[in-house]
Amino acid sequence: MGMEEFVFVGQEWWGWIIAGYLFLGGLAGLTLPIAYYYWVREKNRAMSLAGGLASFIAIVVGILLLIIDLGRPQNVMAMFTSPKLNLHSWMTIGTYIIVLFTIFSGLYTLPFIPGLGLLRKREYRKYITAIGGIAAFLGLATAAYTGFLLAAARGVQFWNTPLLPVLFVASAISSGLCLYCAVVSPILLKTSPSFREAAVRIRLELQRLDAYVIIGELFILFAYLNISLWGSPGARESALRLISGDLAAAFWIGVVIAGLIVPLLILLGYTLRRKEESTPVIIMSAIAGWLTLIGALLLRYLILHAGVIPTPIT
C-alpha cells in the first residue's frame, strides 16, 4: 500500500450554467474596453452604443445565470449584508467587481442612446471618458477574476494554475473582438452611415489583433495542458480526459479546430486580405466570429467538466 492513493471524483456541481456565466463575464468584460478604445481614439459613438449595450446585456444575463445556479437564492443578500463577509474570497471580490461593472457599463452607455442629447454638451465628454475608463478597467477585472475564481478552488487541481486566468483573459479578448465582427458590425453597417466609412479599417484592426490573440491562446492552451500532465494527480487526470479521454472529441473538434484554428484560417486566408465590406466578407467574418464565441463557451464548459477532485484514501 502506497503512502497516498487517490480516487478521482468528477466535479459535477458547476456545469453549463456556470460555464455560460464565465463566458458572458469574459465577453462583457472585453466588449466594453474595445468600444471605449474607439471612443478615446476617434470618438466613435456607434461602437460605444452597440458595444456598451451588448456588454451591459451580457453581464446582466450572466448575473441572472449566477443567481439561477445558487442553491439558496433566498440568502443572496448575504453577499452584501453578512456580518462575516469574507473579503479574501474570489467569490466576494468577483461579486463586487461585476456589480460595479454592471453599474459603470450602464452609466457609460447611457449618454450614447440617441435622443437623450447628453453628447451635445462638449463638457460632458470628459465625464464620459472618465466613467468609460473605470468601466473598461472593471471589465478587464471581470474577465480576469473568472479565472482566479477557479484557480483558488483547491479541490480541483486542474484549475490550480496561474495559466487559467491568463487563458480566460485571452479567450475573452478574442470573444470581445469577435462579437463586433459577428454581431455589432453587421448591425452598424445597416444603421450607422458614419460607421460605414470606418468599417473596413476597424474590422481589419480588430481581426488583425484577433489573429495574434488566437495564436497566443493556442500557445497558452498547449502550455496549460502540458503543465497539467506533469503536475498533481488530479490535474493530470483532467488533462488526459481532454486530450485523449471521454472529452477528447469535444475538445479537439469543438474547441481547438472549430473554435480556434478554423477562425484563424478564415482571418488569415480570407477576411484580412479583403479591403471591402462585401456580403461574402461580412458572412465569413460572422462565421469566424460565431465559431470563436461557441468555442469560448465550450472551452469553459470543458474545463469545468474535466475537473476532478482527487480524494485521498490513505
Binding site: 456541481w13 445558487l70 439558496r72 475564481l149 479541490g155 477532485i309
Partner: peptide, 20 residues
C-alpha cells in the same frame, strides 16, 4: 442563515467531503 448555495466550498475541498 448565511449560505447562498454557490458551491464554491465543495470545489475547494480537496477531500471531496461535502455534498449538495
Amino acid at each position: 442563515e448565511l449560505c447562498i448555495g454557490c458551491k464554491y466550498c465543495i470545489t475547494a475541498c480537496p477531500y471531496n467531503a461535502r455534498y449538495v
